[in-house]
Amino acid sequence: MFYAYLRGLVVFLLWIINGNVHYHNQDKIPDQDENYILVAPHRTWWDPVYMAFAARPKQFIFMAKKELFTNRIFGWWIRMCGAFPIDRDNPGQEAIRYPVNMLKKSQRSLIMFPSGSRHSSDVKGGVAVIAKMAKVRIMPSAYLGPLSIKGLLSRERIDMNFGAPIDISDIKRMDNAGVEEVARRIQEAFDQLDEENQSYHNAKKPSVFWYLVRIPAALVAIVLVILTLMFSWLASFVWDPDKHRK
């Protein structure tokens, strides 16, 4: 329940800030009963929110660097939303074992970003191995839009596009050749989605009257954020998301 609430709250905040998002090909997203790995080139801190919101009501787990869990409130938030900490310098077997088990035994899918950082080659291998072990498909998506807070505030257009799920069941072994083939298929899908996004994209922004709608919505959002912060701080002392997840 908290996952759905926080996802909705963040999207509500982004709607107030930007209000110019467009989703494409959501019909390609697998049914709620199927688990999968949702992947995209990682371009902003808010693109996973749009990814998760587009695929609702499906809920997701995701990897996050361990440093993000040091803040009491934010760490509790992301744990409640299915995040699990990863040491990027020494990920260990748990980085594979935990998401595989969740994909097999729970109703949650996995969000991963197989490109966009200096760890991209390792993550591409992780996507391939997890998908193979969990016997799930890989769902490609791509974000096109503002990459800065200034761009969001100026209401630059956002396009979130989804491609056909990638089936890797024909790849027998996840050796170097197998991982390279999975990475090739993912990159090919990303390139196609980016090309499609360019055709959708334009510089048109919502009317200036949009600000009149956002003013009362912003007041509501401020109240919700304050209440959520207070609740989360208190709840973090009595509810351990990791313990209850296990």
Score class of each variant (00 low, 15 high):
Gly19Asp: 03
Phe74Leu: 13
Ala134Gln: 08
Val136His: 04
Gly151Ala: 13
Arg214Gln: 13
Lys205Val: 14
Asn202Glu: 05
Pro146Ala: 10
Gly178Ile: 12
Phe2Gly: 04
Asp191Lys: 15
Tyr200Ile: 11
Val238Trp: 11
Pro146Ser: 13
Phe231Gln: 05
Phe190Arg: 09
Thr44Trp: 09
Asp194Ile: 11
Leu110Gly: 00
Ala164Leu: 02
Met133Phe: 06
Ile78Cys: 01
Ala177Glu: 15
Asn197His: 08
Arg214Cys: 09
Glu181Gly: 06
Lys124Phe: 09
Val39Ile: 15
Lys204Met: 11
Gly151Pro: 13
Leu9Thr: 06
Ser106Met: 03
Val238Phe: 14
Asn202His: 15
Val127Arg: 05
Met112Phe: 02
Lys135Leu: 00
Leu193Thr: 11
Ile158Tyr: 13
Lys243Ile: 09
Ile73Tyr: 01
His22Pro: 00
Ser106Gly: 09
Ile168Ser: 01
Leu152Thr: 15
Ala55Gly: 01
Glu196Gln: 13
Trp239Ile: 10
Arg7Ala: 09
Gln93His: 01
Met230Tyr: 10
Ala64Met: 09
Val11Asp: 10
Trp77Thr: 09
Ile29Ala: 04
Pro241Ser: 00
Tyr200Cys: 11
Met112Ile: 06
Trp239Cys: 08
Ser115Phe: 00
Ala142Glu: 12
Met174Ile: 09
Ser169Gly: 02
Arg185Asn: 12
Pro216Arg: 03
Ile96Ser: 04
Val123Arg: 08
Asn20Trp: 05
Gly163Trp: 12
Asp33Cys: 00
Val179Thr: 14
Ala95Phe: 06
Phe231Cys: 02
Arg56Met: 10
Lys204Tyr: 11
Pro30Gln: 00
Asn18Ser: 07
Asn71Val: 07
Gly145Met: 12
Ser232Pro: 03
Val123Ile: 15
Asn161Asp: 15
Ala221His: 05
Val100Arg: 08
Glu67Val: 02
Ile29Asn: 09
Trp46Ile: 14
Val223Lys: 12
Leu9Trp: 08
Arg245Asp: 10
Asp89Tyr: 07
Arg157Ile: 07
Ile215Cys: 03
Lys124Glu: 14
Gly8Thr: 01
Trp76Asn: 03
Glu181Phe: 04
Arg173Tyr: 14
Lys150Ser: 13
His119Lys: 14
Trp45Arg: 13
Ala218Glu: 02
Arg157Asn: 07
Lys132Glu: 01
Lys65Val: 02
His22Ala: 06
